[in-house]
Amino acid sequence: MKKIELEQVSKFYEKDVPIIEDLDLGIEEGSFTILLGPSGCGKSTTLRMIAGLEEVSGGTLKIDGRDMKNVQPGDRDIAMVFQNYAIYPTMTVRENIEFGLKNAKIPKAERRKRIEEIGGITGLTEYMNRKPNALSGGQRQRVALARAMVKNPQVFLMDEPLSNLDAKLRTQLRTELIELHQKLKSTFVYVTHDQVEAMSMGTHIVLMRDGKVMQQGTPEEIYDDPDNVFTAKFIGTPPMNVFRAEACPKSWKIPEQAHYIGFRPEHVRFFRPETESIELEGRIITREMLGAEILYKLDTPYGFLQARDYHTADKHEGNVRLWLSRGELCFFDSQENRIRSHMEEY
């Protein structure tokens, strides 16, 4: 069932500068949906429209099938976690968590019970009477989470909540958020520009650019089966290698409409595979040792490419031969959209 539906939604501040145009989007109940995209792609605006912090300029936005047009943010049964935590600095942790409950006129006994419970879950019990400035970054983020959770909302909205934390804490909280989502079973909508975060946490990813959805699906679908060059290059570190078709030799048997050829770095092989493959020569420019794997940057007659290899005894140096398995190539047309018809040819 769709929890949140956007139909033909658009957003502009001045008539001629749309941020989002005719956006159609459905967010599944109980999903962990990630709105992913580069800065300025409209993902935050979309989230803020769902929250009611931005007005919807055109189209309809429904939560639980109900049009949200005249519903105040406080009445949407949602909670939001902000990038900079947005916890009230003049209130103690307890007051921060309690503020929304008080405004919703929840009786005192009930409030106390809920706060205690949440304090236990988030590990904030002993900090309840502290002011935010006496807390660490991770603790502040937990206060923000606690403040959202205590309201028992049906939908959690999160706007890059982890980007202000250091790398180690970020990974830790990532796991905690996944667990939290599994425990609460409510709908999470999570905005980020970090594709690693998106891939690791989301059950569903919506990749956006310039106010449009470029592709959506499970992390696997998005990674394995990109719809366009943008998706191919946005997802994955390093991104998919993309060659211009016109630079490549005829012998590669590229479909006629194809303008770009893409392949993932891990699909570049240093040995001839069993399957039908293309062979090319390249010169290794750099070699990055990442531990279990090694990244190479290579110069080939058709452009630069990156290759990922497992860390094994043999080290590649200088000029090397490379093979690409034909079945793993992606072709894109002049509009940078995926050509899928060639699949049948083989």
């Binding site: 501040y13 800065s39 792609c41 605006t45 310039d210 993309v242 060659f243």
Partner: peptide, 25 residues
Amino acid sequence: MEIAEKAVFTGMERPRFKLKSRMKA
């Protein structure tokens, strides 16, 4: 590949969007 990459990235970083969303905070 580098050319294609550049094209994609300039497309993404359209500054007017960035500015707008911040101005209308």
